[in-house]
Amino acid sequence: MNDDFLYRARPPLRRDFADQLYERVRRLPWWMGVWGGYRSRKLTIRNAFLALLIVAVAACTYAVTTPRNVHVDGFGWVQEHRGQRTLYAADSWNSSAPSVPSSPPSLVSVEVADEMLDGRLKFPTWVPEGYQLVNSGLRPPLIPSHWDTLVTWRREGSADGQGDLILYLRSQGIPPLEGHEESYVEAPRHRWEEVHFRNVTAILVKGHFDWRSMPPLEEWQDGKFVIRWSDDLGYSLHWHEDGIAYLLETYDRGLLPQELIKIAESFR
């Protein structure tokens, strides 16, 4: 069994199913699912009042909680805009910011996430020259088992993914720094070292798990799984601060570990 087998074992898709579904979906009225739920309700004074109340509450909530756009301007988070539900790089300085679906997952701004975490959230005030913020969709910290938020910077001129610097954050169900399969830092001991900054102890991991190809069966040794690591896949830094787990990860081989630590030092 290998990658190729797992792709080949997929059952074929029936042509008539594909065609029938396409026709069925196209025949669905456009308003279905939008107004369908409301059509069966009677128009009464009570229902009309409730509808108005809901609209008023929604409008007030939107006005009060509308998130802002923030972006890194070389050395810090300096720009804010009100008026959009999700947070992306501002169009004025980066028109190639990737689109993120409005739903799901629902995203909130840096500030809203910070408020949800009682002001404990920290972000870098410095990233190396040439890096641009390309994605800062933050998931609300509601899913305990997942890394909650995701911010990506990309080195100018790099291929998609190759020059990325990614910040993951997690506020619930925080795993230990080492030796836990959820924590990512499942690296062999000789692959990581402790580093210190701002009274924080962090784990600097050299290389990454090499997922580019599946290893042979022999990597199971004495019934124990042995992870294959690659040195040429960049560094990552993992630490805890004020009850939040931070994982700064890069596949950019041009980014030095000292720079990664300097970014972490700049978190405010």
Binding site: I143, W147, E181, Y184, H208, D210, W211
Partner: peptide, 11 residues
Amino acid sequence: TGLSESNVGTI
């Protein structure tokens, strides 16, 4: 999924 890329690879 909200997992980190490395975590996805490992799993």
